[in-house]
Structures are given as structure tokens and as C-alpha cells.
Nucleic acid binder design. Sequence first.
DNA 1: TTGTACGCGTTATCAT
DNA 2: ATGATAACGCGTACAA
Lengths: 347, 347
Amino acid sequence: MDRHRKPTLDTVASAVGVSRATVSNAYNRPDQLSAALRERILETAASLGYAGPDPVARSLATRHSATVGVMLDRPLSSDPAVSIVLDGLASTVDGHDHGLVLMPGGVDGGPRPETVARAQADVVVAYSLPDHAPALDVVRARGLPLVVIDQPVLPDTARVEVDDVGGARLAATHLRDLGHTRFGVLAFGLHRDGATGPVPTDRLPDAAFRVTRDRLTGYLDVIGEAPVWECAGSRRDLGRAGARELLSRTPRPTALLCASDELAFGALQAARDLGLRVPTDVSVVGFDDVPEAGHAEPPLTTVRQPLAEKGRRAGELALRLLTGARPGEPARLPVSLVDRHSAGVLT
Amino acid sequence: MDRHRKPTLDTVASAVGVSRATVSNAYNRPDQLSAALRERILETAASLGYAGPDPVARSLATRHSATVGVMLDRPLSSDPAVSIVLDGLASTVDGHDHGLVLMPGGVDGGPRPETVARAQADVVVAYSLPDHAPALDVVRARGLPLVVIDQPVLPDTARVEVDDVGGARLAATHLRDLGHTRFGVLAFGLHRDGATGPVPTDRLPDAAFRVTRDRLTGYLDVIGEAPVWECAGSRRDLGRAGARELLSRTPRPTALLCASDELAFGALQAARDLGLRVPTDVSVVGFDDVPEAGHAEPPLTTVRQPLAEKGRRAGELALRLLTGARPGEPARLPVSLVDRHSAGVLT
DNA sequence: TTGTACGCGTTATCAT
DNA sequence: ATGATAACGCGTACAA
């Protein structure tokens, strides 16, 4: 028997004794046929085990897959900030009946080119990829519309961005106003090499990640020269190790600027490790304002960016691009300083 | 001009002066034609802006989309444990040239049925869905192979599971052996209603989530009756609130059993809120052993389950199902107690 | 290497 | 109003 061959529109059509087009209409354009017929069609479909039009065939016919792709610069694990952005994106596109294909990054800052080449998506959003990620070229080559988050201007590309330089300045200025003069900076990776450790100042300007560059620029604009420690990822343990290093130097920094809350949580632990009190002995400022920031010990002073909104906006832009709209102006999201208790006056 | 119509295999074929089949072979079966011809084909393809065979059309022809779907019971945001599992899954299928479509859950414990209906996937893995999630029915109806994680036995379904009952017993036994007799339990949601609060004991057995049921069973098997507080999600803030409640009762529990590390972190904060020391005044045990557990204050005693491995196994099973293999035996993953410093002898 | 028959729908256009 | 016909959409795979 061909019980093993799944039923198709034709199967149902001939069972009911109507044409394939009519069955298709029963699913997609109820107004094109009588309610009674539609009912009969749906019933026989159910009895035949037909679950509705095949998504792939439909995609071929309509020439769109109703799916948006997301490229990440890293694996999914570590930073909750990423999950929040992703969730905003996912729920937005889902609300418009679009699917989401996930392309997490490998070690070198982005998904594999092959992954992107075979992804079934009508549009893709890139989240914080390094400037010349191969994955981006593939998107181009395929002629897929692109929206980027936290990345530099690219021709013909929609963009959502936050003012990272400004946010970083906010953090640095806050500390300076509290009287601090000796700083340490915990930064993200500058390049795709996964390096961790102290950063020679002259290597800063050519960092591959825009976010890294901008936050660093913002910090250093305000505080001038300062030791910078590079963390390969936005991970608590890396932040802890880096902060421990920075806080062990002589003279010891009195304030730490951290490129993410996750890094800052690590710094908080490092301070405890060393028997330093926050903010009495050392001040710590983060970036992101993830939910946990308010519950840390002590509650973290940080730069807030609207994470869920970032994902939503990216989703909306992607959807708009699908309608044929031009990229248009980038969506700019606000940052603000959230003054909690991990930064205090220098005593 | 039809500069706006993307080139296809045919475009390239006629430009080179060969048949469409040959161009197809140039991409998929390099051995079927001379290297020189292949080279010429690829070159003209590039010059025409042809980026390779269209994934959708290929899927229709081959009858598989080379994609696995993942259904989650909740949004992506909160618990890092989920991200870790997901990442294991994603990298496994990516390594086998398969894509991943993400279907996060809404409020009622699982993705929308429509989302599942139009997902382009050859197989789907369900992660901790409630027992009768509508999404599962759709998967069935579509005749897609299914692998479940942390869910009850379903006919004709591959499964990866950990011994949640055993793990919970480990935790409870540990505390009992330390001399504790008054317990409090912080559980996941029992039903899809998003309820948070104290749980009447008689409502326990029919919980919709297997994980919730099993961990609770394991705890209560060992400790007997105890107050249970239900948290709608595995979130730190919910754990904190619940723990604060439990720890305010008279007589106060001396030990808290938490269904996840995330909940346990909240409990740690609650203890601090109330001026209680851990483990001197109250012991806390988690479940999962996420990376942060070892860095908490104090380092968290918890039940370890291999999260990344869970995702990998699910990916492997999904891939196997695609080859036509029968579901076979479930993959059973080990749990173990990680004895750190948040649980101590009753003084 | 090439013809060519699929794969499974969608959407005009046409007929009743 | 309702329903049917047939021309795509873009590849793959097998026989010739």
C-alpha cells in the first residue's frame, strides 16, 4: 500500500471529488467556496490524515518561506541579554506568522557560511557580528534583505542601534563625578581570536566588533588612559578573572567599567574574592541592565538599554523589508544610567 | 529588464550552454563532470549573481528540508539551563548540515499550533512541554518524527530523559542526612495557568509538567509532608519571593529544596533579605548545576544534570529518526549530587 | 551529459 | 457565486 506516502492536496481533492484548487481554497480562502463544501473537504482531509498544505511546497509556490533567520556571533549559552533580545525578536515575527531559524555563531564570530547558504529564510537579522563576517557575504550573495543589530553601517541594510558610545560615557562620567581617577576596564573581545588578557592600548582602534569599539571609545574618551582587560566572551567567570587581575595591580583601580552586566557580576565576585567591599573599596558599573542587575549584591549600577525592544524592533524591520520597503532610517534606542549601589563616592 | 528576477539554475545553464542538470551537478556532485566545466559553470554563476540552488526548491525536490524544529514551553529569556541545552542541540544539528527552527512557548506552555503547522522541519524536538500541549498534536497530525526531552513516554517517540525523581531524592536525602527535619520546597509551575503561590498537597499528583511532578515526588518521598511553593517560571525573582514566604513561616524551615538553580539563587537572596545565613541558619539545594552555581554566594549545593549533553543527545536522536530509524530506547542521562557549601548540618 | 518526469502547492483565468 | 483548468515556482534524480 501507499499508506506510507503522505496525502497531498490531490489526494483530498479526488477523495472529495473536487479539484485541487478548491481544496487549496478551503484552507487559504474560505470565502471562495461554500461553507458546506469547505466543511466536507476539511472533514475528509482529517479522515485521510491530511494535515494541511505542505509548508515547503507552499513556500516554493509563493516564493517566500515566511521565515526570518537570525545570525549570532556566538553560541547561545552565556549572557541572558542575548536571550532577551532573541525572545523579543521571536515573539514579534511569530505574531506575524513568521518562523525563526537560528544560526548561532561558532568560534570565529558568526555562523558557518554553509549554514547561511542553505537556510530557508526570506530575510535575515545579524546580531553583533564582527565587521567582516563571512556569513554576511553569503547573505549578500543570496540577495536576502538584511537587518543588523549592533553593527556598523552597511549599504542597503536596515539597522537597530543603541548609542554605545554615549552609554559608555554615561557610565564613565558618573564614576568620574564621584571622584574616581584610577580606572580599570573590562572589555569584550576585540578580535575573532578569542583572546583574553590585557590589551596594549595601540591595538584598540581596529577592533572587529563595533560594540567593543564603541563602549571602549566612550570609556576612554572620558577617563583617558586606563588598563583594559579583554574578555573573549560576555561571561561571568571571565569577568571575575579579569577583574581579579585588574584589582591586584598597584596602584589598585578604585573603579571598574564593565562592558556588560555579566562581566560586572564577575567583577563583583572578584572584589569579594579579594576582600574588597563594593562600593566602599571599589566601584563597579555594568552595561545592559539585565533583570538580575537589580538583585545583585550590591544592586548593580549600570547602563540600561532596552533589550527586548531591540529584538522587537529588529523583527519589525525585518518584516517591513519583506514588504519591499527600503531600509530607511535606523531604529535608535535610548540608553540611560541606572544608578543603584555598586558605584559610590571615592573615600 | 528582469534584473529583478533572481537567476536560477536555468539562467546559468543557458548562459554556459549546458543543461540545467549539469549545473545542478556542478553544485551537488562535482564528480559527475569535468573539473574544467565545473569551474566554468561556477564562474558564470558568480558573474550572474547566482548564489547556488534555492534551498526551498531543493527541499521540495528532495522531500526534506534539512531542518529540525525545537518547541519550548516558554519564552527564551530566563533560565540559562535552557540556553545550554539549546546550544548543544543547535551545534549538533548544524554539524550535520541541518538548520534549526525555533518555536518558543507562549503563555500556555508551548508554541502556538499555527506556528508548528507551518514550520519547515523534518523532525521536531519538544523540550519540557506540558503533557497535552496542542503543539504536540500538530506534530502528530503532520506525521513528523518527534523527540521529547523531559517529557513522559509518548507512543512512537524518541526520548532523552534524566532521572528527576532520583535526582530529587539525592537532594532530599542529603539534607535529611545532615539532620534537617523541617523543609520547604520551591517548585515549578504545576499547571499551565501561570499560578504562583502555596500548593495544597492534594493538587500535586496531576501536575501537567513531568519535570515538576517528578522532582516533587522525589523530594516528598524522602521528606514526607512539607510546604510547597509553586513558581510560575524558573526565575530568580520568583524564587526569591517564594523563599521569602516559606522562610517567614513559623516554625521556619531549616532547609529549602529548589527545583532549579535559578530558583535556588533566588532563595539565597531571600535568605540574605531576611538576615539569615546560609548554610548556618538555612540550607539551600538547587537542581541543574548551571555554571554560575559554583560561583554563587555561597557556592550552591545542587543536583547536576548534563545540560549540554542533553541537547546533543536530542540532536542525535532527531538526526537518527531522519534516517528512518525507529525511536528505540530513550537516552538516559545521569544525575549526581554536587556537594558545595549551601547545605550544612543542622546546628 | 542531457531529457524529463516528478515534488506539492498557488493563483490567475475561464466556465458554468 | 462556485468551481475547474492549467501555468508556473526551482530544483533533483534516473534513465537514456
